[in-house]
Simulated assay, not measured.
Amino acid sequence: MWWICGLAGVAVVATGLLGGDGFHEVAGRAAPVLAFLLAVTVVAELADAAGVFDAAARLAARAGRGRTWLLWLLVVVLGTLATVVLSLDTTAVLLTPVVLALAAQLKLNPLPFAVTTVWLANTTSLLLPVSNLTNLIGLDTMKGFGVSGTAGFTALTWAPFLAGLVGAVLVLGLAHRRSLRGTYGAPPPAPERDPVTFWTAAVVCCLLAPAFVSGITPAIPAAVAAVVLAVVFAVRKRDALRFSLLPWRTVVLVSGLFLVVETAQVHGLEDLLRPLAGTGEGFLDHLQLAGTAALTANVADNLPAYLAVEPLAGSAHRLVAVLIGVNLGPLVTPWASLATLLWLDRCKARGVTISLPRFALLGLVGVVVCVPLAVAALQLTR
């Protein structure tokens, strides 16, 4: 998929379908987003190599005191924190295998934990600009509506974020209630870890949260964190520093999507979507817009869906409705978000079989519950 998007991006520029002005506009918007993506991925990968995620999962297992339902709730907390601070892709790529390995070691059904991880990656990615690439892109647009910085962004998203989280937990808890009964034994001993890399990575991850809400451009603290960890690993565990740490496939994919969707906008995509999106500011108007964004995401992936629907927002609250649709909505099709595709790969690698029809049916229920709840909560911030 990444190379198709890359070739498509090159093609629209090479053929002149996207002119020079459009290309420079895309480059200006994409550069800080891609810089953040590169830096935070390096941070997450090195934190995983240091054992931070494994330690957090084992801590959750001990705190669960042998009760499966309590362990599941602690995984909800862990997945939410990972998504909010380190982005949904971190949860999908790095937390998923840790949680699945823990479930296997404790002899628990892995499906509730697997599905919970990917749902949290999507539904809890609304709170901070750094939680989702769509949020980072929307941060600049928010300024045009008089909302600036992380504080202004979060003032509009905290209530929909909480509503989406509650909706997801209720649906998942009811759907997997039988598997979450019972108890489990003590987790096996933790593997040996280098204390310097472990504690450095743990402190860096903890410091990122206040840094991201401080108002500084998110790419800056992420880059500083990546450099600090890279230096420590160069001294202590040089073999962990490899080219594959850089998410170059994702960079190519995102760059291509930016270019293709901008080209489609130039050639009339906005006019096609306008009748579906509506124009009003009430609950039903916001729900219509969020529904349009969610439908588009499940058809064509959430990032191009956001880029396509964003011009139809027209206000800060309507823009949050778009984000609700593209962040909480991608629960039905496996290609609705990159995080879901990455999650499927991790499940396959761990030998966990995901029934896509059942995944889609449960996801449809999740969208029907979470998106309206989040839109209703959005009205509290008006």
Rank of each mutant, 00 (worst) to 15 (best):
Q265H: 15
A223E: 01
G79D: 14
D301P: 11
T250D: 03
I324W: 13
V320E: 09
L361F: 11
A11N: 09
V352F: 14
L126R: 06
L229D: 03
V367R: 12
L229S: 00
A57M: 05
R274I: 02
V367Q: 11
L246G: 00
A11W: 11
W72I: 13
R346G: 04
C206H: 02
V85A: 13
S87Y: 05
V332L: 12
C370L: 05
Q379C: 03
L128M: 12
A44P: 01
I4E: 06
P330G: 05
V332S: 06
N132L: 10
A293E: 05
A103S: 14
W158E: 07
I137M: 14
G28A: 09
L111M: 14
R193D: 04
D239W: 00
A336T: 10
A313P: 02
A49N: 06
P372E: 10
G215K: 07
G325A: 12
V224P: 01
A168T: 15
P188K: 04
L34S: 08
F258G: 07
T90N: 10
L246E: 09
D194Q: 07
T80C: 13
G146D: 13
N109G: 12
W248K: 06
V52R: 10
W72G: 02
L78T: 14
T41Y: 09
Q105N: 11
V203L: 15
A308L: 13
L172G: 06
L111Q: 12
W158K: 09
L307K: 13
